[in-house]
């Protein structure tokens, strides 16, 4: 990569780092791991910089690398997510409120709820409802069919709803 290209790449990383890192956090649930995943995605982009001629496609490429790295990482034995009989104790003694999107406790609830969704479905939810991608773009990013994205979306939403309901019920006890 020439110095000019490296400068261009560095500018792109600086501009997109926070956004990519937030997406990674939603996918993995840990800020430090999200740093690792962010770096992994950008490193892959560096290797493919010459091949990505359409600069508008950079975000999609990074997103795809990020999701792939996240799911690969979650499948490693030492990182594999394990099903538990009961969900962790909900923070605080509050139930779900109308202003669920605000407040630290609600954020923790959402984090726990998102962690209760399988990684693949979680990726679909994040891409669709955080990144704002449509079904076709999500299918392209995840390299699967649009029908698969739709079904995973429905299942992910149902799982999220179920976990939130359970957390809310537990918090209200």
């Amino acid at each position: 990569m020439s110095p000019e290209e490296e400068a261009e790449f560095a500018a792109y990383v600086t501009a997109r780092r926070d956004r990519v890192r937030r997406t990674a956090y939603l996918l993995c649930g840990d800020w430090h791991r999200s740093d690792d995943l962010t770096q992994t995605a950008f490193v892959k982009l560096y290797g493919a910089w010459d091949q990505v001629r359409d600069r508008a496609a950079l975000d999609a490429f990074v997103r795809r690398c990020l999701v792939r790295a996240t799911i690969d990482e979650s499948r490693r034995p030492w990182r594999r997510e394990r099903a538990v009989a009961e969900l962790p104790q909900a923070p605080g003694d509050r139930g779900l409120t109308a202003d669920l999107a605000s407040g630290v406790v609600d954020r923790q609830l959402m984090r726990q709820a998102l962690d209760g969704v399988p990684p693949g479905q979680r990726a679909v939810l994040v891409l669709r409802y955080y990144e704002g991608m449509d079904v076709a773009a999500t299918a392209a990013a995840l390299e699967c069919s649009e029908g698969n994205v739709k079904s995973q979306t429905a299942r992910g939403l149902a799982a999220l709803k179920a976990v939130l309901a359970e957390l809310g019920a537990r918090g209200g006890e």
Partner: peptide, 10 residues
């Protein structure tokens, strides 16, 4: 709601 929750979390 999901979008808002995700954004708040991120």
């Amino acid at each position: 709601t999901v979008s808002r929750l995700l954004k708040a979390l991120a």
